[in-house]
Simulated assay, not measured.
Amino acid sequence: MNRTLALASALAAVITPAASLAQVTGASNPASSTTQATTAAPAPVAPQAMPAKIAIIEYEQVAAATNEGQRALEEVQTKYQPKKAALDALAAEIDTLQKQLQSAPANLPEDERATRVRTLDVKQKQYQRDAEDASNAYNADVQEAIGKVAQKLGPVVMKYVQQNGYTMLLDNNGQQQGGLTLMWAPGTDISKEVVDAYNASSGVAAPAPSAPSPSRSAAPAARPRTSK
């Protein structure tokens, strides 16, 4: 019996340190104590910033520069030629009345002088009304004509941007907010390339070289001198 007790004590002395060592190892390595087959999660990869390739365009100017846009502007200008001629004639009449009033003799009766002044004032006010109406109508027709071309210009612009690897398209329309221009990023002006591409796809021939290039903002009117 003493041999049995001694053997049990010896076995206990051997097993206990091994068990303690296993517990210590498991505590220092939690992964092995749970699931050794589980691999560590890969470290997240930091995103890399891709350089932007920016294209710049001003839709209205490009639309007006196309062959179709130039023809549309010429049609608007032709439409308002009669009104411009009438305003030019009224401006010449006002100029003549002003010169006659300024060169009138000093002994001109007051009632006749007053009549001339009233006539001149009526003509000037008529001119201002007619010129303002014509200018507003002219500019509205120009915006409508250019707007129609600009709408058809969109697909051509997007196709060019995609084919040439641009990542951003900015419309440099010149609008300002708080005194600062909204367009700030550097980029490549693609206006000429888009005009050429649109002309090729539209099939509209260029206007005759002798035809003057119409202005989008100029109203068909001249300003007469005001009487002093």
Rank of each mutant, 00 (worst) to 15 (best):
N139L: 11
K99I: 05
T25L: 15
E110I: 07
Q124T: 13
K53I: 02
D121R: 10
A131R: 00
Y80W: 04
A114N: 12
D130G: 03
K123M: 13
Q126Y: 09
Y138D: 05
P82K: 14
T35S: 14
Q61W: 01
K79E: 11
K53R: 12
I94C: 00
N136S: 13
K84E: 14
A91H: 04
D133P: 02
L21W: 11
T119Q: 13
T35K: 09
K79R: 09
Y80T: 02
A85S: 14
P42M: 06
V76F: 01
Q98L: 12
N136Q: 14
A22V: 14
V24G: 01
S103G: 10
A41C: 09
A137Y: 00
K123R: 11
T119A: 06
T35P: 12
A40N: 13
S20P: 00
L73F: 07
A41L: 11
A64I: 02
P44Q: 05
Q48S: 14
S28C: 08
P44Y: 01
L21P: 02
P109M: 06
A86Y: 09
A40T: 06
Y127K: 08
K99P: 03
A85Q: 15
N139I: 06
A22H: 04
N67S: 04
G69H: 02
Y138H: 14
P44C: 03
D133R: 10
K83W: 03
Y59Q: 01
P51Y: 08
A72L: 07
N139V: 07
A64S: 07
L120E: 02
A92W: 01
I54H: 09
L73I: 12
P82T: 09
R113K: 15
Y80G: 06
E75C: 04
P51M: 13
T78E: 08
R71D: 01
N107E: 12
Y127N: 08
I94S: 00
A27T: 15
R129S: 14
L97V: 06
A86H: 04
D88V: 07
E112I: 13
T34G: 05
N29R: 07
K83F: 02
A43Y: 07
R71V: 06
I54F: 01
S20K: 12
V76Y: 00
Q102I: 03
A31K: 07
N107L: 07
V24P: 00
I94E: 00
E132I: 04
Q98H: 04
A64T: 04
Q98V: 11
T78K: 15
Y138K: 06
S103R: 05
A86M: 08
A63D: 00
I54E: 04
P47S: 09
L120A: 12
A18G: 04
Q126A: 13
D111I: 08
T119L: 07
L97R: 06
P109Q: 08
Q48P: 01
A22F: 05
Y127H: 15
V122E: 15
T34S: 10
P30N: 04
V122Y: 08
D133V: 13
M50R: 07
